[in-house]
Nucleic acid binder design. Structure first.
Lengths: 338, 338
DNA sequence: GGAAGGTACGTTATCGTTATCTCAATTAGG
DNA sequence: CCTAATTGAGATAACGATAACGTACCTTCC
């Protein structure tokens, strides 16, 4: 039988006793504060090692009111767009000594509010919110008590948070111009969740670009930002599919989700309808026809956001707002007509 | 100017003063312990609300040695297999009052060890480890100090943890039998990371099934479990591609990653080589030809694991080990030979 | 009427760590 | 050799919440 009854983990006092010094001395040694003799230092280190001592983070955090934890809130962790952002953020956070607490709110504003409260309880030192779904007022109230906040794709409230925004407006304008140059004139928009700020930006860009050519949107349909949502949109506009020759989608998942239903209904992509997505998730280059999309440097985005957050935690509010440009990746769903 | 200098958050003492009672009474009221007069109760609740009081979790956790946090460790959050498991786990954890701390270790054993230590520091009440990459001894040492552990796809150490295992062995045996029935005889195996326990199970199943027909593996190549890994494998065996007529892959990402290189080299799938993946990630049904795969109920898996963990935290070690069966999903990459 | 029990609260001590102060021992300078 | 500076290390007191214990005061019933 193994003699390890999983007792109480050792405390700083246990280490102190083992080393024959006071707890305070152990604290000094372990935190490299100096003021400890060489011999004492060695004894303390040895005792700590022997007992596998690990400082109690609760006690530490209680004392100095810092958790060394930061949060990141995403609408849906299953959407491939977000894990890459999380990874980027984590890549920066960990070397800086921070633990990343990632929370997904399954596209639900109530849940988002709840999660922000939970992060407050956990006393995170700061947090990143991706694509907040809360309305302006509730968002402001929810972030107010937090010590440092960075918003991704939610430029509002610059006074209370750092912001990083993808310039969707410019991105979709490029998309529309490209499609028009290819002879497309009748546009649909699969708009994603109506609570999305990024969705509104995309609509603005599309409408502005279309207006310059005297055109306007034929369809403007909201949907959930996933494969399912794309399939539902397809089902809804299929009866009138002939009215459009181009479909711009809120994200790649929606675009991919509509491709099979269209094919099954005999609508050819890109023959009858060109399709453009957004995000450039890995699947988009694997399907046939491969999906034209706006690429966003997701991991970079996460890294930038985390760097900005750490700056803010440290009290350096240098960069208040950053805008990043998406890249138009032309693939098979948008060939020149011919 | 808004008058909110983000002071120190209110403590239980502040609430007590505001309500004209002692901190202990506030504690009793807020925790529904009873032993408080109706009028007093109302005053306390009102004061707490007015101050937006939120109990300090550090103090609470320090006192009762519980964090109400559980961890989940995955090899790579960008691999679509894992976010669904995380979502399942979270779905069960949150209603039970637990916060889920998800950590990804980017396929690195060192990092895995480090993360398990970090979770120990955070005093998680328990944790789920998905597809541990650590060897037996280090894994045991790393989980020993934890209060409750559930291992996914790592049956070892049943004495020290609950386990949930996908029966890959049976799954791939079904795959091999199906392929042999379709006339395939020369098999390759894209084996994934050599540190993966699930990978070894898959190999065992394949070899057992092949042996029953007097066959054996032509290729057995390790690779990273992502699209990149699949592309690399393809590059490696392409010169000798004619030696096989079926390729079984550790996961769908690897399978998808090799499809384009094969097509570009003029190797037809499934004409020349049938391909089978594992996991059934969403992309697998979207590509052409659609990928035959072993479907795993990922979200269910996460939910089961979390239920098992919560049981163990509560001291109920009912289910010690669960085995779940994958489903063979036949698609276009494995048609009957004609 | 007084012992027994109940209710509503307050006091004290504690969880593990560390900032601050204190004191003792050592060393340096004159 | 004695004072002043320097260094090593302990004692104390928080941080915020709460378990355990105390203490009033009020019922209730023989």
């Amino acid at each position: 039988m193994d003699m390890k009854p999983v007792l109480r983990p050792p405390t700083i006092t246990d280490v102190a006793e083992a080393a024959g010094v006071s707890p305070m001395t152990v604290s000094r040694v372990l935190n490299g504060r100096g003021g400890a003799g060489e011999e004492t230092r060695r004894r303390v280190l040895e005792a700590a090692r022997a007992l596998s001592y690990r400082p109690n983070t609760f006690a530490k955090s209680l004392k100095n009111d810092r958790s060394n934890t930061v949060g990141i809130v995403v609408p849906d962790i299953v959407n491939p767009f977000f894990p890459e952002i999380i990874r980027g953020a984590e890549l920066v956070a960990r070397p800086a000594g921070y633990t990343l607490l990632s929370c997904n709110v399954v596209e639900d504003p109530e849940r988002e509010e709840e999660v922000l409260g939970m992060l407050l309880d956990k006393r995170v030192d700061g947090l990143i919110i991706c694509s907040a779904r809360l309305d302006e007022e509730r968002l402001l109230r929810a972030i107010a008590p937090h010590r440092a906040v960075v918003l991704i794709n939610r430029a509002a409230a610059k006074r209370h948070a750092g912001t990083i925004e993808v310039d969707y407006r410019a991105g979709v304008e490029a998309v529309v111009m490209q499609l028009i140059a290819q002879g497309r004139t009748r546009f649909g928009f699969a708009a994603g969740p109506s609570s999305s700020h990024g969705g509104r930006k995309r609509r603005e860009g599309i409408e502005a670009a279309l207006a310059r050519h005297g055109l306007s949107l034929v369809f403007d349909l909201p949907c959930t930002p996933d494969l399912q949502g794309g399939a539902e949109i397809a089902a809804r506009f299929l009866p009138e599919a002939a009215r459009i020759d181009a479909m711009i989608c809120y994200n790649d998942l929606i675009a991919l989700g509509m491709m099979r239903p269209l094919a099954q209904a005999g609508v050819s992509v890109p023959g009858d309808i060109a399709i453009v997505g957004c995000d450039d998730i890995p699947a988009s280059s694997l399907v046939s026809p491969a999906l034209t999309t706006l690429r966003i440097a997701k991991q970079d985005l996460g890294e930038m956001a985390m760097r900005m957050l750490l700056d803010r935690i440290a009290g350096r509010n240098a960069q208040q707002g950053i805008v990043i440009e998406p890249d138009l990746i032309l693939r098979a769903t948008t060939p020149a007509l011919g």
